[in-house]
Simulated scan of single mutants.
Amino acid sequence: MVFLQPLFELIESKFGETINHFPLVELIFYSIDQTLFYFIFWLIGRGIVLGLKKKKKKPIKWRREVVLNLFIFYILLLIHLTVFRAENSINNVSIVMRPLSEINWIPFVETAKLTQGTTLFDYYYNLYGNIIWFIPMGFGAAYLMKRNHFVLRSLLIGIAVSVLIESLQFIFYTGVSDIDDVIFNTIGTIIGIGLFKISHWIYKKRQIGKPLEKE
């Protein structure tokens, strides 16, 4: 780790033996650390773009800019959590040739098997984790796409990212490619879009209810 190693070692020394499934905590720390590293390069590039915009006297929507940056950070974190996990990174993965039959194509079969484990943690994390992790996908995409057909476009983005993640897991052999993940990710995306629509409706109602300012 580059940024979070001291904090992780502190938490590991105090809670490593008491927290169940501590490897998940380690994965989150590792993923955030790697995301911060690549996000710095994004910010540098984005700063250059905004600087050019300012020179051309083009208006910058700062609220949208903040959401865009948070969305990019989220996407990078999501990819690291799902694809470049453990000791894997962009620098050391390699393509592994495998038959497509190794993909779990039949819905809900593997998820149902997780209910037969010694604990239900893997089942709950696979089901609810895949949904929750993609709620920001739907919300963020809907916010950034506030135009005609934004619901369909945001949904397609969520599905496309989910399929991309499953494909990368298969190509680099860093995870199990499962149709269930795409289904649960899509549900999460739909929930995120719904939350955006509700929040946007509330915002518009409040704006309408505000008294006009005197000039």
Rank of each mutant, 00 (worst) to 15 (best):
F3T: 07
L4D: 00
P6Y: 05
P6V: 11
L10M: 09
E12N: 13
G16Q: 06
G16T: 06
E17F: 09
E17K: 14
E17R: 12
T18F: 12
T18C: 00
L24G: 12
L24C: 02
E26Q: 13
I28F: 14
Y30K: 14
Y30F: 12
T35I: 14
F37W: 09
Y38I: 15
F39A: 07
W42E: 00
I44V: 15
I44D: 03
G45M: 04
G45E: 01
G45A: 06
G47N: 08
V49G: 02
K53S: 08
K54G: 07
K54D: 03
K58D: 03
I60G: 04
K61W: 09
W62C: 01
R63H: 09
E65K: 05
E65A: 06
E65P: 06
V67W: 01
N69M: 12
N69Q: 13
L70G: 14
I72Q: 06
F73I: 09
Y74K: 07
Y74W: 14
I75T: 12
L76T: 08
L76E: 08
I79D: 00
H80V: 03
T82E: 09
V83H: 02
F84E: 01
R85G: 03
S89G: 14
N92R: 08
V93C: 07
S94W: 02
S94F: 13
S94K: 12
M97T: 14
R98I: 00
N104F: 12
W105H: 01
P107G: 05
F108C: 03
F108N: 03
A112G: 11
K113C: 00
L114W: 02
L114I: 00
T119G: 03
L120R: 11
L120I: 11
F121A: 09
Y123I: 01
Y124D: 04
L127W: 00
Y128M: 14
M137H: 03
A141V: 08
A142I: 08
L144P: 01
N148H: 10
H149N: 15
H149C: 06
V151M: 10
L152M: 13
L156V: 10
A160T: 14
A160P: 06
A160E: 03
S162E: 05
V163D: 01
L164I: 15
I165L: 09
I165Q: 07
E166S: 06
Q169D: 02
I171D: 01
F172G: 02
T174K: 03
G175M: 05
G175E: 02
V176A: 11
V176W: 05
S177K: 00
I179F: 09
D181A: 08
V182P: 04
V182N: 06
F184E: 04
N185H: 10
T186H: 02
L195H: 00
I198M: 10
I198S: 06
S199Y: 04
W201K: 13
Y203T: 13
K204L: 11
K205I: 11
Q207W: 09
Q207G: 01
G209F: 08
P211Y: 03
K214R: 13
E215F: 15
E215L: 15
